[in-house]
């Protein structure tokens, strides 16, 4: 597979995963702000915006949602992410199935069309749900129409890399701000915020099935970090990332065999064999920082091995 193609596949799905995540975070927080009185409601928005990479002082929920959805000038907005995904996919449209390209186009044109209206006038939740649905459909189409070969794997790598980063950022934000007692009990006034965290990861129902609706901080951390079965947990994402990377052929010229998988395998093993008590005792924030950093290392290793390798080294073989 062409290096440029691999690169574009990776970024297509990173952008799509990001668009889906942003749509969900905005939607969940719109719901939250209905439940909260205005002064505390703003807090949720500040955190949401920050987790999406925006720094806002005194956020106004309506204009913030508008910006996060439609502002092409902000790289965090849904429309920017979709433009990014589509631009990458357009460069490799012969590599993905026609069905995938058509679905991506459909989502893109829907967002463009909706973008001319005010988000508040058009039912915003409906719009955000249609974005998420459109991207889910894209992923489903991908799985059922594209060969599960190298290209598909680069898509998976992009998707789970982005998801791991998003989940870890959300967790970091949340656990910095909210307190719990020695037995993991949360404070009643924060209850809605903890639900919001779970909802932002589509994890509320799944959590309840495992632990009941009794929300505890350590259980939530355990579920979102270490669950091997829940698709938005860090461990699940990094498992998938590693499995996809392992199946990719590293060039015969690479002397450092398996550089990428060493990194991803170590990170995966770390999460696979850690206990949540240990992580919480030694500092959740620190662990999450380290995970983010290792993801960044994997990202640059992928680029060095598969995309931007030195020609001289490759010609010698």
């Amino acid at each position: 597979m062409l290096s440029r193609v691999a690169d574009s596949l990776y970024w297509t799905n990173r952008y799509l995963e990001r668009a889906e995540h942003t749509a969900r975070v905005v939607g969940v927080n719109l719901g939250l702000s209905l439940d909260l009185s205005s002064e505390t409601g703003d807090l949720g928005w500040g955190r949401a915006a920050q987790s999406l990479g925006l720094t806002v002082t005194e956020p106004d929920p309506v204009s913030l949602a508008q910006l996060l959805a439609f502002d092409p000038g902000s790289s965090a907005s849904i429309v920017s992410c979709l433009i990014g995904a589509r631009e990458n996919a357009r460069q490799i449209r012969e590599q993905i199935s026609s069905e995938m390209w058509e679905q991506l186009n459909r989502v893109f044109h829907e967002v463009k069309r909706a973008g001319y209206d005010d988000l508040q006038e058009a039912n915003p939740l409906e719009f955000l749900e249609s974005v998420i649905e459109g991207i889910h459909l894209f992923q489903g189409i991908t799985d059922s129409t594209m060969t599960h070969g190298e290209g598909w794997r680069f898509l998976q790598v992009g998707r789970y890399m982005e998801r791991a980063l998003n989940t870890s950022t959300l967790l970091k934000q949340h656990f910095r701000e909210f307190q719990w007692d020695d037995e993991g009990r949360i404070f009643p006034k924060d209850h809605l915020h903890w639900i919001t965290l779970l909802r932002c990861c589509t994890a509320f129902e799944a959590y309840c099935k495992v632990y009941t609706a009794d929300l505890k901080a350590d259980r939530i951390a355990e579920f979102l970090l270490l669950s091997g079965e829940f698709p938005h947990s860090l461990r699940f994402s990094l498992d998938r990332l590693h499995v996809a990377l392992e199946a990719l052929p590293e060039g015969a010229w690479t002397k450092k065999t398996g550089k990428v998988t060493r990194l991803s395998g170590r990170l995966r093993a770390n999460l696979g064999f850690s206990q949540i008590e240990e992580i919480l005792a030694s500092g959740l924030d620190q662990s999450l920082e380290s995970i983010t950093e290792q993801c960044a290392q994997i990202h640059s290793a992928i680029f060095q091995i598969f995309v931007n390798y030195p020609i001289e080294a490759a010609v010698e073989v």
Binding site: E250, G251, W253, Y309, I311, V315
Partner: peptide
């Protein structure tokens, strides 16, 4: 390279 044309792929040239 050396009058041969190669393309850059993920598995080398």
């Amino acid at each position: 390279n050396n009058n041969f044309v190669y393309m850059r792929t993920t598995a080398g040239l």
